[in-house]
Design a protein around this nucleic acid. Structure first.
Length: 594
RNA sequence: CGGGGCGUAGCGCAGCUUGGUAGCGCGUUUGGUUCGGGACCAAAAGGUCGGAGGUUCAAAUCCUCUCGCCCCGACCA
């Protein structure tokens, strides 16, 4: 493919719009890839569309190879679809809604579980038609509270979403088989796109379901934190990451007499620590959760979770450790029940119907007695020298129905690995570009999609779903791979592989003649070539070539022509001056870099 | 949704405090000189100052309301 710069639209700019903050937003805008239309909504100009097309094609090839079939569903979805699974409420304002002339309310699809389930419900009548894996590459809409960072979190974005349908979980044709195939396809896709990425275990989020993995592009500017164990290869996001065994002791001696301190008007734990001149790691914070459902039927109404002041409670772990579905207690309800929100201490677990979960780091074994500051269970007061044994009492600490030591906090770098004794977790930042879920029967049950199995038993169909943020992949790639001069594309998704810069652009010039001849031979060899035929000064064209990030630049000037050569330079080679390559060897030299 | 900030030419900004009929740089157009890392000279085009209302002889500037956008947080595939 050959394109002249002057015959397409690449509006580069020296300065980025002042509202652009992240590197990908700035560089994609400056490079003439995207243009903001309104908050979180962008034009994709020709360069961007070429990149997106290349990513999409890699996605298609790998999805097809993994046995999936492409289809195309509407953006406009009747609201009833989402109401049927209660996701209209679950999504809330995140769902774009519009009313048509007849007064029908429609949504702009944020994902298509309901739509595809309706479709397969109508089209699949027998277990013999399963398994099935269907996908589309579509524009998705989410009315984000705060769109940000250009393409990384938009309100309109391009996504590949796939859905698989099965009669069973295990064995041939089962969900696990498809899930594993998708996992492998995703590894292939992101590898082929030239991304540095990590697959991590993840929580499945509001889409629901059991197992889940996220694919994260490794990048310091990423919004998400992932933890990895260098010894075992275990990797998970913060929400999911387990922490290895940690010793605990609830029976240490007190470090001193309990003292109450007046701490008026201090909203956060940091302020209290500052006021009392205590490090937050010497404080205990206790979060109150309301029990929505006690799955073990113990009649629990509250779960308290105590962690060290510098740690964060993890709601998912609280759910797992308590065996309850919980939610952060609404302040009003908690007050009514007698919890002094903001000043709650572990002693508050003396309430009836209350379970106390204690993180091991909140009760570590210590040679010298640990010094703790915590709430005083009354407004504007904290206590010093809190001690588990003395202040909560042996009786309660020894009652497994009331108190449990468990991992209930977010993992941090340096925590013990859950998979490899002695190893420590490492933290790094990432941008989520793919997510695969085992959905189970959540949607098929809610929507009545069940069919007869071999034994003539009616059973709900088991589903999986698999997403890739195609437009986010483009942005994440720029975040991962750029320098002060612009974007540095990996070859497989670069808009063009080669940019040819003839020093003289008159159609009759020798430089232009060579440029045309070379571009023909390169195109025949499979390269996408951009000829910078603009009548601009060399500096401008070099700067622009660096900015848009084309991997190979061929410069044709008098000096190189005198040697029957062109100047060959890789975009990734920042200080190199380029090398002279004989015109006849250019194609093979380019092939050598692919 | 809470906190902060910003809307003046395609982009980046000044002017606003102290009202007097809009300016700078980049880019664009034309002519000339240049020509290997964002050239120079000269001329030119381009703006309902986000919108509505108000105060005033007079509003980009002061007041009220409104719309939009960005950043931090909350939330989030």
């Amino acid at each position: 493919m050959i394109q002249s710069w002057s015959r397409t639209l690449i509006p580069t700019a020296k300065e980025a719009p002042s509202d652009a903050e992240s590197p990908s937003h700035k560089l994609l805008t400056r490079g003439g890839y995207i243009r903001r239309v309104t908050a979180g909504v962008y034009d994709y100009l020709p360069l961007a569309w070429r990149v997106l097309t290349k990513i999409s094609n890699i996605v298609r090839e790998e999805m097809d190879a993994a046995g999936a079939s492409e289809l195309f569903m509407p953006v406009l979805v009747p609201i009833e679809f989402y109401a049927g699974t209660k996701r209209d409420e679950a999504y809330g304002d995140l769902l774009f809604k519009l009313t048509d002339r007849k007064g029908m309310v429609n949504a702009l699809g944020p994902t298509h579980e309901e739509t595809i389930t309706e479709l397969t419900k109508a089209g699949v009548a027998s277990y013999k038609q399963l398994p099935l894996n269907l996908y589309q590459i579509q524009t998705k809409f989410r009315d984000e509270a705060r769109p940000r960072a250009g393409l990384l979190r938009g309100r309109e974005f391009i996504m590949k979403d796939a859905y698989s349908f099965h009669m069973g979980v295990e064995g041939p044709g089962g969900l696990n088989e498809a899930y594993d195939a998708m996992y492998r396809a995703y590894v292939n896709i992101f590898t082929r796109c030239g991304l540095s990425f990590t697959a991590v275990e993840a929580e499945s989020g509001p889409i629901g379901g059991s197992a889940s993995h996220e694919f994260m592009v490794n990048c310091e500017s990423g919004e998400d934190t992932v933890l990895t164990c260098p010894a075992s290869g275990y990797a998970a996001n913060v929400e999911k990451c387990e922490i290895g065994p940690r010793p605990s002791d609830l029976h240490a001696a007190p470090a001193g007499d309990l003292q109450e301190v007046h701490t008026p008007g201090l909203p956060g734990i940091d302020q209290v620590g500052e006021f009392m001149k205590v490090k937050t790691r010497n404080m205990l914070k206790t979060i109150v959760f309301r029990v929505v459902e006690d799955r073990q039927g113990r009649g629990l109404r509250w779960v308290l979770a105590t962690v060290r002041g510098d740690h964060d409670v993890n709601e998912g772990k609280v759910k797992a450790a308590s065996g309850c579905t919980v939610e952060l207690a609404p302040e009003k309800d908690a007050h009514a029940a007698g919890f002094a929100i903001g000043y709650v201490s572990p002693r508050a677990a003396k309430h009836h119907h209350t379970l106390l979960l204690i993180d091991p780091d909140a009760c570590p074994p210590a040679e010298k007695p640990p010094f703790w500051v915590t709430g005083s269970d009354r407004k504007d007061h904290h206590v010093k020298y809190f001690n588990w044994k003395r202040d909560v009492g042996e009786a309660m600490l020894n009652d497994p129905a009331k108190v449990k030591v468990a991992d209930v906090r977010n993992a941090l770098a340096g925590d013990p690995s859950p998979r490899s004794p002695g190893a420590k977790l490492e933290a790094r930042r990432g941008i989520e570009v793919g997510h695969i879920f085992k959905l189970g029967t959540k949607y098929s049950e809610a929507m009545g999609f069940s069919i007869l199995n071999e034994k003539q038993e009616r059973q709900p169909v088991i589903m999986g779903c698999y997403g890739i943020g195609v437009s986010r992949v483009m942005a994440a790639c720029v975040e991962m791979s750029h320098d002060e001069n612009g974007i540095v594309w990996p070859l497989p998704i670069a808009p063009y592989h080669v940019v040819i810069t003839p020093m003289k652009v008159e159609p009759t010039s020798e430089a232009m003649r060579v440029a045309c001849e070379l571009s023909g031979r390169l195109a025949a060899a499979g390269f996408d070539v951009l000829i910078d035929d603009r009548d601009e000064r060399p500096g401008v064209r070099f700067k622009d070539a660096d900015l848009i990030g084309v991997p190979i630049r061929l410069t044709i000037g008098d000096k190189s022509l005198a040697e029957q050569s062109v100047e060959f330079k890789l975009r990734s080679d920042t200080q190199g001056k380029g090398e002279m390559v004989k015109i006849d060897s250019v194609v093979s030299r380019c092939l050598g870099t692919a």
